[in-house]
């Protein structure tokens, strides 16, 4: 943002937004949170700054890397492009909600076993995008996995261990239902 504007010119917001905080109610991981936010505050910022749900990460904050992916009504969305005020009453799932009562989701188990996380920074977003895929498609092909996850960047793994973890999870979930 710094390289386009003329330096030395004040563009004060005059505290306008601060005085316009709205009390919103969010349903996150099955829990209800009330939080006062300005209308321009993103879900990413609310999660991390107001609610201490720092499991959701950020890589660009402009919708380019998929790192901040969370689920809204089980669909993956970029929390950096989503305003808090527009998602009241909807079901939000973050990485903190993937584990239930101390029990890992099978996709988490598979990521751990196959070392699909290295630095781990893209991992929360990857896990949530993977879960959303598996909820919709019980037996995705490799191409379908690549398509579903192609909005999530990872610089460590070369992606294959993540693909294998999704496949392993699909096979386990399939087997457990038979």
């Amino acid at each position: 943002m710094f390289y386009t504007g003329a330096v030395g010119t004040a563009k004060t917001k005059g505290g306008l937004l601060e005085s316009q905080k709205t009390l919103i109610t969010l349903q996150i991981n099955g829990e209800r949170y009330e939080v006062a936010v300005t209308v321009n505050k993103t879900l990413l910022e609310i999660l991390r700054e107001d609610l201490d749900l720092t499991g959701t990460k950020h890589g660009c904050e402009v919708g380019e890397c998929g790192t901040c992916t969370v689920l809204i009504n089980d669909q993956p969305i970029l929390s950096c492009l989503t305003l808090g005020v527009e998602i009241q009453g909807q079901k939000i799932t973050t990485i903190e909600g993937l584990e239930q009562n101390g029990k890992l989701h099978p996709i988490q188990q598979a990521f751990i076993e196959l070392q699909a996380a290295q630095c781990g920074y893209c991992t929360p977003g990857m896990l949530l995008s993977s879960k959303a895929l598996l909820d919709e498609n019980k037996n995705p092909s490799q191409d379908e996995i690549k398509e579903a996850l192609s909005g999530n960047l990872c610089r460590c793994t070369g992606y294959w261990k993540i693909i294998e973890a999704v496949e392993l999870t699909a096979s386990r979930l399939g087997a457990s239902k038979e």
């Binding site: 749900l53 720092t54 499991g55 903190e96 993937l98 751990i112 996380a117 781990g120």
Partner: peptide
């Protein structure tokens, strides 16, 4: 499995900005 995989796969790992 890596010793830190559990934390990294559950959002518990605290990076500097967290």
């Amino acid at each position: 499995p890596r010793v830190d995989a559990g934390d990294k796969c559950t959002g518990r790992t605290k990076y500097a900005d967290d």
